[in-house]
Amino acid sequence: MMSGFGAVAAYETARLFRRPFGWLVLAFGQGLLALYFLLLVVRFLENQGDLQTTGVTVEIIMRYFSVAFVSVILLTPLLTMAAIAGDKRSNMLRFLYATPLSTSALVLGKFAGVLSLSMAHVVLLSLIPLTLLWGAPIDLGVYATNVIGLVLFSLMHNALGLMASALTRAPVAGALIALMISLLLWFAEWGARLDPEASMIGRWSTLTRLRGFAEGLLVSADIVYFFAATISLLIITAVLVSMDRDLA
């Protein structure tokens, strides 16, 4: 049923790790987040004088992860943009239609490939705050929910990036489409705040859905939201790829 999935996933992973661009994106994200983490620690020490006090989790961990979420919005489109658009541009996608590879194997293989580098980003980001374990009483529960939130948020944004990549032959356009949709979903909560009658929009906002994870709560509705969004976006991607078979 999923013959070829492994081959596509392995190729996509190798493509991302083989080219310097993926490494540059990863290094840039890690560098910025590490610097931000350092600034948070320095500011905390300037205000409190000691890491062995309460407030480390709120002032460092929670603030750090709020920026980590934004880094996913900004960097994921750069990793996913060429996944399908690049194959469309080189006519490789049309050739793949002539093979026994199913659309689901193709889309899931691409998804697994782009996830490999994104998850490397998430894992490394999540390891940085653990350095506080050497000298500060951090709340590991809050830390864990933030990591879970980050993983789910990243899953959804990889699926979104893949869908945007399936919409165009130009990878840069794919990245811009993904970024615009991500920002719309992020800022939807602000729109709801401006107009109380539009509270429904706020429920669709990723910012609203991340609040629980950021504050140390695991809300099942939020978990379902991210899983449902990821699956829906993958299904839309598969439909877009299938429709492409009808187009010139």
Binding site: Y11, R15, R18, R19, S90, N91, M92, R94, A98
Partner: peptide
């Protein structure tokens, strides 16, 4: 099937 342009991943 060999299309007009060979379908290759050149990397």
């Amino acid at each position: 099937y060999l299309p007009q342009t060979p379908p290759l991943y050149d990397d």
